[in-house]
Simulated assay, not measured.
Amino acid sequence: MSLLLLNFIRYLQPTLPLYNGIDKTLYIQKSDWKRERFGLKNNETVILYAGRLDQGKGVIELMDAVTLLTSASFKNSDIIIP
């Protein structure tokens, strides 16, 4: 597509920003997320994965990366997959 045509289309139909995000008021929790609830210490690094457990989502790569991190520099770390 030529730049001239692209600019013409933008002139006819101006774009509006589409914000990614959620309405936080829909997800108000009555209790805070507490480390003690999961048996985590304050000095531990937490890696949280929140997504579908599917090979296409890179869960295997995440597990490999966590293994490398915990064996190298992040000795006090845990992964949480709810």
Rank of each mutant, 00 (worst) to 15 (best):
Lys30Met: 09
Arg37Asp: 15
Gly21Asp: 02
Leu69Asp: 01
Asn7Arg: 15
Leu5Asp: 15
Leu68Gln: 13
Leu53Lys: 05
Trp33Val: 14
Glu61His: 05
Ser71Val: 06
Phe8Ile: 14
Asn42Trp: 09
Leu12Asn: 02
Thr45Leu: 14
Ser2Thr: 13
Ser73Asp: 11
Leu6Cys: 11
Asn7Trp: 14
Ser77Cys: 10
Val59Pro: 01
Asn20Tyr: 12
Ser2Asp: 12
Asp32Lys: 08
Ile60Val: 10
Leu69Ile: 05
Leu18Asp: 06
Trp33Lys: 08
Leu4Val: 14
Glu44Arg: 03
Leu12Tyr: 05
Gly39Cys: 02
Asp78Thr: 13
Ala65Val: 04
Asp64Ser: 10
Val66Ile: 10
Asn7Phe: 15
Phe74Ala: 06
Gly51Thr: 03
Asp54Ala: 13
Asn42Leu: 09
Ile80Leu: 10
Lys75Val: 06
Asn43Thr: 10
Val59Lys: 01
Glu61Leu: 10
Asp32Ile: 02
Ser31Asn: 14
Phe8His: 11
Glu36Gln: 08
Arg37Phe: 13
Phe38Lys: 05
Met1Lys: 07
Gly39Met: 06
Ser73Leu: 11
Ile47Glu: 00
Asp23Arg: 07
Gln29Pro: 12
Leu16Met: 11
Tyr19Lys: 10
Gln13Leu: 14
Lys75Thr: 09
Phe74Ser: 04
Lys57Arg: 09
Asp54Lys: 09
Ile60Met: 10
Leu62His: 01
Leu5Cys: 06
Met63Pro: 00
Phe8Ala: 13
Ile81Thr: 03
Leu16Cys: 11
Lys41Leu: 15
Lys75Ala: 05
Leu40Lys: 03
Ile22Gln: 03
Asp78Cys: 13
Arg10Met: 07
Asn43Lys: 11
Asp32Pro: 09
Thr70Leu: 07
Leu3Tyr: 08
Asp64Asn: 08
Arg10Asp: 15
Gly58Arg: 01
Asn20Ile: 11
Ser71Pro: 04
Met1Val: 14
Lys57Leu: 00
Val59His: 02
Leu4Pro: 08
Ser2Tyr: 09
Glu44Thr: 07
Leu48His: 06
Lys30His: 14
Ile28Gly: 05
Arg52Thr: 04
Ile79Gly: 01
Ser77Gln: 04
Thr15Tyr: 09
Val66Tyr: 15
Leu69Tyr: 06
Leu26Glu: 08
Leu18Asn: 11
Asp54Ile: 15
Val59Glu: 00
Asp78Pro: 05
Gln55Pro: 14
